[in-house]
Write a protein that binds this DNA or RNA. Sequence first.
DNA 1: TTACTTTACGCAATCGGTTGTAATTAAAAT
DNA 2: ATTTTAATTACAACCGATTGCGTAAAGTAA
Lengths: 343, 343
Amino acid sequence: MEEHRHVTIYDIAERLNLATSTISRALKDHHTISDKTIKKVKKTAEEMGFVPNTLAAGLRGNKTKTIGVLIPTITQPFLSSLISGIEVTARKSDYSVIIMQSHDSYEEEVNMTKSLYSSRVSGVICSLAMETKDTSHFQQFSSNNIPLVFVDRVPKGYNTFRVVIDNYTAGYKATKHLIDQGCKRIAHLTAGAEFGNLYNERKRGYVDALADHGIPLKEELIVNLKTMTYDAGVKACDKLLGLKTPPDGLFAPGDILAVSAVQTAKKRGVRVPQDFAVIGFNNDPISEIIEPNISTITHPAEKMGKAAANIIIDTIESHKEEEAKEITFLNTEVLIRESSKKK
Amino acid sequence: MEEHRHVTIYDIAERLNLATSTISRALKDHHTISDKTIKKVKKTAEEMGFVPNTLAAGLRGNKTKTIGVLIPTITQPFLSSLISGIEVTARKSDYSVIIMQSHDSYEEEVNMTKSLYSSRVSGVICSLAMETKDTSHFQQFSSNNIPLVFVDRVPKGYNTFRVVIDNYTAGYKATKHLIDQGCKRIAHLTAGAEFGNLYNERKRGYVDALADHGIPLKEELIVNLKTMTYDAGVKACDKLLGLKTPPDGLFAPGDILAVSAVQTAKKRGVRVPQDFAVIGFNNDPISEIIEPNISTITHPAEKMGKAAANIIIDTIESHKEEEAKEITFLNTEVLIRESSKKK
DNA sequence: TTACTTTACGCAATCGGTTGTAATTAAAAT
DNA sequence: ATTTTAATTACAACCGATTGCGTAAAGTAA
């Protein structure tokens, strides 16, 4: 296999007897270059198979048109949709996307921020690892004017862009829906405070909805999970449905858990939704396919990705130094399907 | 916000009164640098918050430790697992991963190869877009000694690395399983030849399995789909189950299709598996959750990703110019679950 | 024709590591 | 004390595109 050397602007310059500066400017339609020259240069570049070296440009200009995405894992419908939204939006503005998975490890996350900084990404989008409590490893981006957007799992008390849903309201709405369906004993699965404020917020919505409708809060109906997995859900639901007075409804803050609840109920001969109404969260593909279909809360993954990417790109292109680091809230909706329809 | 300038090896050199070359070598434990100096340099680098600029290194060395991944979409269990495998493996060797989605568009794919080449990726892993027939846009990688690995949806007649499963055998085994269960009229969904040889191979396995077991091939039981979607599956199965003599089994080359088949059957009052045994493909998470569970063929996405990434990295690190461009076959297994158990 | 604008393009430094080669110094050998 | 040899470190070119500044050429007005 013959090894070609990359064609550079020097090669084009030599061929046309022009300066490299002229080539560089011509290729990007700089106004000080005549149309004639521009056309000639572009034609020659095409002929010679010239492909710009973004490394050189990036080194010189200290910007790479690259967005670093740092998330727990990509094999989760919500997160892969998020990335999809980021990628599509980035591409429109000719940005590339580098993906890294922290696998919910703090240590990995720290290393990956270094790696991203090292490759001089133009911006960073991150959904925090479960383990992460301290976010000082993100300071390097803020300090160097690299826009940083947290999505979904965001830190508190850190002045950066954030793209989230209103988890409190979503939790409230989900619970209220179950109340509206006549549920009196509504169970809830949640995760410990160490996981950031996401599940806490949903739980807060649940608690307030109960209170607002005069339904007493029963601690026995709230199960704290370590991991939000199918198996953990099965175990929790087995426990809940085994109570002397079992719940007649469940707000699961994730569709996987809702699925596990529905199937556990079925296995125990508990009818869904008649005896046990279930509502999930996320609107994962599976919620629509399982029988009965699972009511859920939409979680606009793709939109959130697009929003995050747009923030990055806008911030860069507008050269705004002192940008207000706003929080972007995206809407969620209650999607009523069979699993919660008591009426 | 104060804008720091990046700390460079020049800054370290100045501080320590050493040459930049010494700093550079010390940081990578070059044997010509004394341990004393190495320690001193590393300590100072740490103190000053030095982070190497990979762009500069990449520009100079013409290698970036970056793998470009070009796939139809990431919001598909198989593909997101594939990426996950790639990312994990890449990271172990300190490689980054750039993701691009062709959305099955030939034009996008062509643009993206340019973009990847432009950013001087060290290697490329690709699963072809549905539309792609001509693969000359990948020539730029081959010509420039950038290792290229096709995964799953691979081109024919192009001498590159390929990581695939044996679709023929998998199709054969799936069909044989249905035959073993006593099915006499086995239907099959497939896709036109323009989609590459993947579905054709599975179909070939289906055809041969029937022939080997003395079961006549009925054209009416083979439905050609344009897209492998849930809705397309429903439509096809409605047609199949509406035949005068409907099939008593189905080999669907994708779990989504299998799910649509199971649900369509249920809706029509056809019992699965008693009246209609179904086997899918991929072992998507959903196949395990739907009721009845769907028998399927495993498709080792994560492993394929790892294999592909390893090929890239090994090729680069071994500096082999004339590497044999082998095809890597990964194993698949028949996963027998409820949807096909007639016996 | 002279002076003044535009228009078009070239020069050369720059971004930050990397690396072949030369130079300097220290340690060892004679 | 002198020559070898080995151990360290320095010099400077290089990767390829970008860009501020300067200059030459062409055009316009006086």
